[in-house]
Every structure is written in structure tokens, then in C-alpha cells.
Amino acid sequence: MSISKETAIDIALAYREIETAEGLLADINKAVERREVPDVRDAFGRLQGGFQLGVPTSDTSRTLFNVPWNLARPIIEAHIAAKKSLVGALNEKARVEIDQPA
């Protein structure tokens, strides 16, 4: 048997989030250790002085700008931990799907 397309997509997206967050965290940690501003740029190539947190949807968007990098680190670490936990749960779901008869 095989796992469902939905489960496979969910696993892939969780791994992508982990990979992206770990890369960002590594960049932030390196810069902070050197007492530099992390070289994190927006889509237009502009250097960002802090982290953005938000829900960008139409007229009800809520965004916090320039959240200090030292506050971003625990948020990113918690996000990584949550996604790793999700991967574990999805792996169990995949095992159940594989064991189900067709």
C-alpha cells in the first residue's frame, strides 16, 4: 500500500518549513555572535532590521514590523520544534495508511 497524497504533501511542507527556519536561525545566530545585523533581505533585496510577524490578508491584516532579532530566535526555535513534532505525527499517520488494506 501507499500513503495518501495529502499526507505526502503535508510531510514535504513540514520538512520545507524546518529547512527554511533552520537556515534563517543559523544566519541570525552567526550575525548575533558577531554583533552584526543579520543579512536578511526582503523580496526587493532591501536589508531588514528585524523580523516580521503577521497575517497579511486584505483589510484585516495584522503585522508587527522590526521585531528584534533576539526575540525572533526563540520564535523560530519553537516553530522548528513544532514542525518536527508534526513530522513525527505525520510519519505515524503514514505508517497507518501503509498498513491499511486496499
Score class of each variant (00 low, 15 high):
Arg73Thr: 15
Asp99Lys: 06
Leu13Cys: 02
Ala89Asn: 01
Asn66Ser: 05
Leu13His: 06
Thr57Ile: 12
Thr7Gly: 04
Pro74His: 12
Asn29Tyr: 04
Leu90Arg: 05
Val32Pro: 00
Pro38Phe: 10
Ala8Phe: 13
Ala26Glu: 11
Glu36Ala: 09
Gln48Phe: 06
Arg41Leu: 05
Ala94Gln: 13
Glu33Arg: 14
Arg62Met: 10
Pro56Phe: 12
Phe65Pro: 00
Ala72Gly: 06
Lys30Gln: 12
Ile80Arg: 10
Trp69Arg: 07
Ala12Ser: 12
Arg62Ala: 10
Pro101Arg: 08
Leu71Val: 06
Pro56Met: 10
Asn29Pro: 00
Glu36Ser: 02
Glu22Gly: 00
Asp42Met: 06
Glu33Gln: 14
Lys30Ser: 10
Val55Arg: 10
Ala81Thr: 03
Pro101Asp: 08
Leu64Val: 07
Asp27Thr: 11
Glu19Gln: 11
Gly23Ile: 00
Ser85Tyr: 03
Gly88His: 04
Gly45Asp: 06
Ala43Gly: 09
Glu17Arg: 13
Ala26Leu: 12
Lys83Asn: 04
Arg46Ile: 05
Met1Cys: 05
Asp42Ser: 04
Arg34Asp: 08
Leu71Glu: 12
Ala102Thr: 01
Arg46Asn: 14
Thr7His: 03
Thr57Pro: 00
Glu33Ile: 04
Ser2Ala: 14
Arg62Pro: 00
Asn66Asp: 14
Gly88Phe: 02
Tyr15His: 11
Asp59His: 07
Ser61Lys: 13
Ile80Ser: 03
Lys30Thr: 11
Gly54Val: 09
Ala31Gly: 03
Glu36Trp: 09
Gly50Lys: 11
Val32Gln: 14
Ile11Glu: 02
Leu24Arg: 06
Gly54Gln: 12
Ala26Asp: 10
Lys30Trp: 03
Leu47Lys: 15
Thr60Leu: 12
Arg73His: 03
Ala78Asn: 09
Ala78Ser: 12
Pro68Trp: 09
Ser61Met: 09
Leu47Val: 05
Arg16Leu: 09
Leu53Trp: 14
Ala43Asn: 12
Ser4Leu: 08
Thr60Arg: 13
Pro101Thr: 01
